[in-house]
């Protein structure tokens, strides 16, 4: 089995940040805050966050904030919960949460809860359990969960439970590992995991491991490195991660590395990107791979960062 090319991945991420003329960077303009979260969290997990000038990042993030309190994916873009969560997570990485006008951000998040407990992603009203996670994770990091109706939020998520024990984007939708992470994560953060049928869901999740050792997100779909995160984190939150073959999964992730130029792809021999590089490294972190810092499966932040938020300085 190969080894994690950590230094190469660090180089790759630092280089993507500065890359000129790449189509990837153009199409990512609007979600640069997500990109910053993926890249910077990966650097932190690999112990290299100090190679980045935190003041620059923080001042840029603050410019992405809209007058409504929410954050856009970049300067001049409309606010959305997806980017608001990334902004809060990156500020948490740098221990800079205190730069936030707390009431402003939390008012924005609170304003997006609907009567049935669900959350819209922004003022345009799209509803999805992904946004429930974004709102709940954000407010928990900011210690202001009391501002929303948690009971209703939980009830909505539970209404998205499927016959196989998983969760979908809305009531009746198919189980999908990404949505399961969001729902289980939100339930974990709110102390509501008793709503999860852990044995049934655990079996469905471990059935996602295919011959190659990789994980898929739904039955009969191809394995993909990003599901290493979504499936694994869910299994850990419900305490069933030992049901999969960890060694085979580690091998699958390592096989998706570009060992020459750094970066990790969705599956072996595909082109690498920041998104899959983050999910690959985060997956290895959950698998306790040596040399990678531990990541918290619910908050999707390094464990030391989460400890700093909730238990003071570490």
């Amino acid at each position: 089995m190969g080894e994690l090319a950590g230094d190469k991945h660090v180089k790759y991420i630092l280089c993507v940040e500065k890359k000129k003329d790449s189509f990837e960077s153009v199409v990512m303009e609007h979600l640069r805050l997500n990109g910053a979260y993926w890249g910077l969290t990966t650097l932190d997990l690999l112990g290299k966050l100090d190679t980045v000038d935190s003041n620059e990042v923080v001042s840029w993030i603050l410019q992405c904030q809209h007058e409504s309190g929410g954050f856009g994916g970049n300067i001049g873009h409309d606010p959305h919960l997806l980017y608001t969560l990334s902004a809060v997570q990156v500020l948490a990485l740098f221990d800079k949460l205190d730069v936030l006008d707390l009431n402003k951000v939390t008012d924005y998040i609170r304003s997006l809860q609907n009567e049935d407990g669900s959350f819209s992603g922004d003022v345009w009203g799209e509803v999805d359990t992904r946004f429930s996670y974004c709102a709940i994770c954000c407010l928990a990091i900011l210690k202001r969960l009391d501002l929303i109706n948690v009971e209703k939020a939980v009830r909505y998520i539970v209404s998205c439970k499927t016959l196989d024990g998983g969760f979908g984007c809305t009531p009746g939708a198919e189980s999908h590992a990404g949505q399961i992470f969001c729902c289980v994560g939100a339930l974990a953060i709110t102390g509501s995991l008793h709503h999860v049928d852990k044995d049934l869901l655990g079996w469905w999740l471990c059935e996602r491991q295919v011959k190659s050792g990789g994980l898929n997100g739904r039955p009969e779909k191809l394995a993909d490195v990003c599901y290493s995160w979504w499936v694994l984190s869910s299994l850990i939150m419900i305490d069933r991660v030992h049901w999969i073959d960890k060694e085979k999964l580690i091998k699958f992730i390592l096989d998706c590395q570009d060992t020459e130029n750094g970066g990790i792809s969705d599956r072996p021999d595909d082109a690498v990107d920041v998104f899959h590089t983050y999910f690959g490294v985060a997956g290895l972190s959950l698998l306790e791979y040596p040399g990678v810092k531990a990541i918290d499966p619910a908050y999707a932040l390094p464990v030391d960062v989460v400890n700093r938020i909730f238990f003071g300085r570490c």
Binding site: K19, M28, R32, E56, S59, N74, I75, G76
Partner: peptide, 12 residues
Amino acid sequence: QDDGPSPVVAIA
């Protein structure tokens, strides 16, 4: 596009 004073990610 305004990427801030010193862009985290320079865009071309």
